[in-house]
Simulated assay, not measured.
Amino acid sequence: MKYSVVIVEDHILLSQALAGLVNGFSKFKILYLCKNGRELLTRLKDPKNIPDIVLMDINMPIMNGIETTIALKEEYPQVNVLALSVEEDEKTILKMLRAGAKGYLLKDTEKGILENALVEVQETGFYHTKDVTNLLLGSLNPKKENKVQLKEREMEFIKHACTEKTYKEIASDMCLSPKTIEGYRDSIFEKLHLKNRTGLVIYAIKNKIFIP
C-alpha cells in the first residue's frame, strides 16, 4: 500500500507539478489537491478524504498554512503536515513548527529531498533539511546533544522558550529577573551548541521536551 498525500497550494500549476512528482514516488500517491486550508477542512469531513500526509503551503488566501495546521492538529492529529514554502525567515518557520508541522521544506528543494522528507515524516515523525537547519542553527552537534544533562529549571525555561513569550514574560512566569533568564538562555545555548531560539525549539521538539 502507498501512503496518501494531499497538496494544499493556491498556485494551480505548481500544485499539479507537485502532484506529478509525488505520484512518481514508490511509496506515495496523491489523494486530491486543495487551493487553501478551508477547502481542505471541508473535504476532510468525509472520512475517505483523510490522508496520511498534507503537503502544506503557508501563504494562501482565505485560510493560510499556519491556521490550517493548527486546525489539523486539533481535529485530525493523525495527519502529518509537511510544510512547503518560499518563506525562509525564522519567525515563519517557528510558527509552523509550533502549529504542529512535522517538517519544513523550501520550494526550491530537490526531488530526492522531497521524497525522503515524505518518508521520514511518515515513518519517523519529523524531518528537517540540512539547508533549513543550517540556516537557522548554524551548526548542531548531535553526539554532544545526547550527553547533555539539563536541570529541572533549565527544562522549564526551554518549555517557556518554545512559546511566543518574550524573555521578559518568561522571567515573570518563572519568578526570576530578566538578567537571570538571560543567564539560563546563554548557558543552555552553550551546552547544546545552539546559536538562536529557533535552534532551541527544534532541539526541544526532537527530544520531546516540547510537543507542538
Rank of each mutant, 00 (worst) to 15 (best):
Met1Phe: 03
Ser4Gln: 10
Ile7Arg: 01
Val8Tyr: 00
Asp10Arg: 01
Asp10Gln: 03
Leu13Thr: 08
Leu13Met: 06
Leu14Lys: 07
Ala17Ile: 08
Leu18Gln: 00
Leu18Ile: 02
Leu21Phe: 08
Leu21Val: 03
Leu21Asp: 04
Phe25Ala: 07
Ser26Ile: 09
Lys29Gln: 11
Cys34Val: 05
Lys35Arg: 03
Leu41Lys: 06
Lys45Cys: 13
Lys45Gln: 15
Lys48His: 14
Asp52Cys: 03
Asp52Gly: 04
Ile53Asn: 07
Val54Ser: 00
Asp57Thr: 04
Ile58Lys: 05
Asn59Tyr: 00
Asn59Lys: 08
Asn59Trp: 01
Met60Pro: 00
Ile62Cys: 02
Gly65Val: 06
Gly65Ala: 02
Glu67Tyr: 05
Thr69Lys: 03
Ile70Arg: 12
Glu75Asn: 14
Val79Gln: 12
Val81Trp: 06
Leu84His: 08
Leu84Ala: 00
Val86Ile: 05
Glu87Val: 08
Thr92Asp: 00
Leu97Ala: 06
Lys102Arg: 11
Leu105His: 02
Lys107Gly: 00
Lys107Asp: 02
Glu110Gly: 02
Gly112Ala: 10
Leu114Met: 01
Val119Ala: 10
Glu120Asp: 06
Gln122Leu: 05
Lys130Gln: 10
Asp131His: 05
Leu135Gly: 08
Gly138Arg: 11
Glu145Tyr: 15
Asn146Trp: 15
Arg153Tyr: 13
Arg153Ala: 12
Arg153Thr: 15
Lys159Gly: 12
His160Lys: 14
Ala161Cys: 13
Ala161Met: 10
Asp173Trp: 12
Met174Asp: 11
Cys175Met: 14
Leu176Val: 14
Ser177Glu: 07
Glu190Met: 11
Leu192Phe: 15
Leu192Tyr: 11
His193Trp: 13
Leu194Met: 13
Arg197Ala: 11
Thr198Ser: 13
Thr198Lys: 09
Tyr203Gly: 08
Ile205Gln: 12
Ile205Ser: 07
Lys208Val: 14
Ile209Asp: 10
Ile211Lys: 15
